[in-house]
Design a binder for these strands. Structure first.
Lengths: 159, 159
DNA sequence: GGTCAGTTACTCGGATAGAACTTGTCCGAGTTCGGACGG
DNA sequence: CCGTCCGAACTCGGACAAGTTCTATCCGAGTAACTGACC
């Protein structure tokens, strides 16, 4: 079970976009992070479809956060990129084979599914606790210098 | 991010094996669950490599739990089948691009990685809290009838 | 009847193909900006 | 000098391949049990 690398890109981009006042094009975000523009476009497309970022077309177009960074959680991004469904999907093998349980005995999930769901719930809650604003506020503290300033300038440039 | 279906099979098999006194061959476990014998063999092989189950070769061979069911957690099985590594792997894109952070600024994980690691830790703790014995004890309660009895008889048969 | 060797059948273990998903790329539809033109 | 029109460049959006992981399968090495002969 490996999380898509697109999630990492998407979160980084959202943090950067939280600093932007004007729309930032995909090409510039890709340049900043030194990643494939085409593939990053795919991830941003997914974020756009999930109403996390808002597209702006035309000459000075690009992407912008669709709501305040405080209201965007890491979970939102993970679900947008990686899919909202559960990571563990029960195939109900208890209803198969010679000793299969009857359907009416299976009105509630099996113990294994419950254990997995509980763990996944804890994972989701933890991801929901981190907002983009939280992450952004940690960056400068981490490096003990103003990194976000140059980034803001970089994404403000066009070309 | 989807968890391997082999994990589901492996957990089910471990629950069944917790009832067994004599080694149970792969073919019988596959028959009980109505799944591919060959592929199930691969999963059991992984469990064997992780010292969760113990193989017994020869005429009346098969697999048996390597330690009491109380000491086998769901996390053990997930790590054995799906790999022990973290699901989120940071590619350190902060060290790339025109505004790359220097290596000595990155002595500790970035905020995004920390958030992911925290969530994953919560997930692991929840999985560690469920033992195979716990799951087995819930089965009969769930169905309000003795399912484990027939299963014990089934896996005791040979042929 | 007991012991022993040989045979048989069964088991696990690793090496080998196919399918599905992730990763990476491309080109077309639509929109905005800039400049040229006319009033 | 100002408003309008036109062209061009830039943007996003979805459709199209390559690589990697997961899924499924097969056959060989090794071991325990069984059968039969022998003592």
């Amino acid at each position: 079970m490996r999380m898509s690398s697109g999630v990492e890109w998407a979160v980084h981009c959202c943090v950067v976009l939280s600093l932007a006042e004007h729309p930032v094009p995909t090409a510039r975000l890709a340049q900043l992070h030194d990643v494939s523009t085409s593939y990053l476009a795919k991830q941003l497309q997914a974020l756009s479809g999930a109403k996390i970022i808002r597209p702006a077309q035309g000459g000075s177009g690009g992407y912008l956060l669709d709501r305040p960074a405080e209201q965007i959680t890491v979970l939102d991004i993970v679900e947008a990129i990686d899919g909202p469904g559960p990571t563990f999907i029960c195939t109900e093998i208890r209803q198969r084979g010679p000793l299969a349980a009857t359907a009416d005995q299976c009105n509630k999930p099996c113990a294994i599914t419950r254990a997995m769901a509980t763990a996944e719930q804890a994972w989701r809650e933890a991801l929901r606790a981190s907002s983009i604003a939280d992450l952004a506020s940690q960056v400068n503290t981490d490096y003990d210098s103003d990194i976000l300033g140059p980034v803001s300038q970089f994404i403000a440039q066009r070309g």
